[in-house]
Design a protein around this nucleic acid. Sequence first.
DNA 1: GCAAAAGTGTTCTGCATACACCCATGG
DNA 2: CCATGGGTGTATGCAGAACACTTTTGC
Lengths: 285, 285
Amino acid sequence: MGYGNVSERRSQPPQVGVSVVILALREPTDGGHGDHDGPSLWMPLVRRVRQPHLGDWALPGGGLRADRSLRRSAYEALASTTGLPVRCLEQAHAFGDLARSRGGLPMVSIVYWAFVDAGGTHDFAERDNVAWFPVDRLPDLAFDHRGIVDYVLAQVRGRIVHPEMVTRLVGPEFTLRQLHAVAQAVAGRDVDLANFRRRMLASGMLEETGEKVREGRQRPAAVYRYVPCADGDVGDASGAAGDVPRGLGAAADAAGAVDSGVWADGAPGRRVRTGSALSALTTAE
Amino acid sequence: MGYGNVSERRSQPPQVGVSVVILALREPTDGGHGDHDGPSLWMPLVRRVRQPHLGDWALPGGGLRADRSLRRSAYEALASTTGLPVRCLEQAHAFGDLARSRGGLPMVSIVYWAFVDAGGTHDFAERDNVAWFPVDRLPDLAFDHRGIVDYVLAQVRGRIVHPEMVTRLVGPEFTLRQLHAVAQAVAGRDVDLANFRRRMLASGMLEETGEKVREGRQRPAAVYRYVPCADGDVGDASGAAGDVPRGLGAAADAAGAVDSGVWADGAPGRRVRTGSALSALTTAE
DNA sequence: GCAAAAGTGTTCTGCATACACCCATGG
DNA sequence: CCATGGGTGTATGCAGAACACTTTTGC
């Protein structure tokens, strides 16, 4: 079916979809590529299989469906790209400039970012048209996706030194050195170890398991687990709208339907067949 | 126009729209209502004229159109609600939970917030189904709009003490006391005047005009104007995604990774008649 | 001079940085 | 005992909070 004439198209809603910046840690290869010798941050991209920008690398994404929440849509886009376990999924920003759609239909992208668990694998399984890249050596990206990645990375880097953030990138138990290595990898800069230790412990959200682990063959390190502050009970989905600006953004989107008297009423949108096939996963978000 | 059967509906995209939390300062009425005696924060709501939630108050909003950027859509929703000059318009969050649409079709709302200039008017012009309320005494709202308002207010309150934020709520020239009163009104709490002064001046973004003004009949106060730091040149629309808040990113968004660039996206073509701070507007779109 | 507002100084505290230092362990 | 990593102590600088204080004006 066609899109009708120009004036009809104008009054129709633009394409709306979600995109996800997926991040995972990769253990250092022997010939480490980066400035640091610890783990480094990688992200998967998908190769476009249609015009415009055919053949270019782009962020994973998909269309919205009426029976999926935004977050769920993001999750499915994520899951169709990598099967790795999801540690964290948060909304970053919605992008909807006209200029960004150059070469395509007008498009609004609601962008999420996610941490997934590479679990020590050196080789990310690469399927279909998916490939992993170190975030500091990305190829040229389609549309304005490079700008989106930069935006998201700035957001993530600024928050990675907080316990509730960095602990999402490691397993349930960890040593402070592991945590530190992760924070450095994500932040892309040196972080003083001693001060990092103190900040983590001072947060009161780390609990010593009592176990010790020798990573090298020197003195064993204490093992910790993350325990979110008990006082902050949430559970209230009623009035509260999810994560607050700076807070520990664990919460999901709040919800709501909008539509107010002011608007020009909507015929239900046309269907978007944008996407890479989104596999229907049933998974707790 | 039917919606088709259930399975067809599911595969269709949900409704997507923008909503705007519009904020303005109101000079204290004689019988001040709040805790403070200074100005107070008010916002307009619109009464719903159709089901669901018919008759309830709701956030102004509108649908997306393919020939409008997100920001532009938000601007138009804003303008259709109040004719007051716009000082600031920024994206807050996209809400898209399934639960939020209870009583309506599935709905995704991309929420903006705005400062508009009430310009000393004690009476906000109320049209149609629009009415203004003090933010701390809102009526019951439709859908999850109350949660959205709370979310936005938390975001705004956390940032109002920054010069680039609070200056948007006052005219081009102001005294530090005026600025302080505004910050207190928005933050909803007492802010130490002496420390506020120092913070503002230390930011280096306030320039003394040389004039003095007597507000009461005591010692006249110095008048300042806001001058954004010169270093933050922008100009680069190339790689950057349209709606990205760019600007003083690095320093500003340590933890919150919040935005800063107010007019980043192409401003609406019809430029706002505040005339004030918008001189440097070059519409890139 | 007095009241009211403008504007300054001083102290205290918390936090982050930088870096020196001691401790535990395996070889 | 020594190399290596685990873990602690200490000095410094910055930023905000609290609050006492001085200065300028109109009456």
